Simulated assay, not measured.
Amino acid sequence: MPDDLTRHVDAETALAGAPPGHKDELRLWLRLLTCTTLVEAEIRRRLRREFDTTLPRFDLLAQLERAPAGLTLGEVSRRMMVSNGNVTGLAARLEEEGLIERRVSPTDRRAQTLRLTARGRREFARQSRAHEGWIAELMAGLAPAERAALHALLGRAKASVRAGLEGGEA
């Protein structure tokens, strides 16, 4: 594990010695956030080291891989939850490298559709194989039944959050 992660004191750890009265929900949120932060930092580090790329670039390629007919800039930005400006800059660099192509949208001549090139598909396949292995490695400390139980519980947590956002009961 990299030194910066081993020295990292997260909010969950800082809260561990907190006096009684802290809500279970807050501790759960902090644990989820800590897990996400640790995994994301390691994936970013490995993408840089192994492929000289970034997580946003990988994510954009992943979105396009899932949509063989292509996506507009707006669709990509909604899926990635980033601004159109961020997508435009990423797309320009990936296009320069020959990994994606832009085409005028067949349904709206004002919009551009982004698609993976053959080279982009090959490169994303290479990166995604490594990514899948890294995630498996990071989750290897959990038994298959534990992963299944955690997945199910997180599904319920997701439904609870959605219900809370809609103002309904969980």
Rank of each mutant, 00 (worst) to 15 (best):
G89N: 07
T107S: 09
E97L: 15
K23Y: 13
D108L: 12
A136G: 04
T53Y: 07
L71Q: 10
E25Q: 08
A145M: 06
A143L: 15
G133H: 07
I135F: 05
L94M: 14
L90V: 04
R31C: 13
N86G: 15
P19Q: 15
A140M: 14
N84P: 13
A157Y: 06
G74Y: 01
M139K: 09
A152P: 00
L30V: 00
P68E: 05
P144K: 01
T36F: 13
A41I: 03
P20T: 04
T34V: 07
P106C: 05
T107L: 12
R49T: 07
G85A: 02
G155V: 00
L153I: 04
R93N: 06
E146T: 12
E123H: 12
R31T: 12
E146N: 01
T107I: 12
L71G: 00
E40N: 09
A152D: 10
A152R: 01
L32I: 10
Q112W: 14
G89P: 07
D52L: 11
R156C: 01
E101S: 09
K158S: 08
H22D: 14
R49G: 02
L94F: 04
S77H: 12
L99Y: 08
Q127A: 14
D59F: 08
V82I: 03
R115S: 10
P20K: 14
V104R: 02
A18P: 06
T72K: 00
W29H: 11
L138T: 05
R79N: 14
A125I: 09
R109K: 10
A118M: 05
A145P: 01
R156K: 03
E95Y: 02
Q112G: 10
T107M: 11
S105F: 03
L33A: 11
T54H: 12
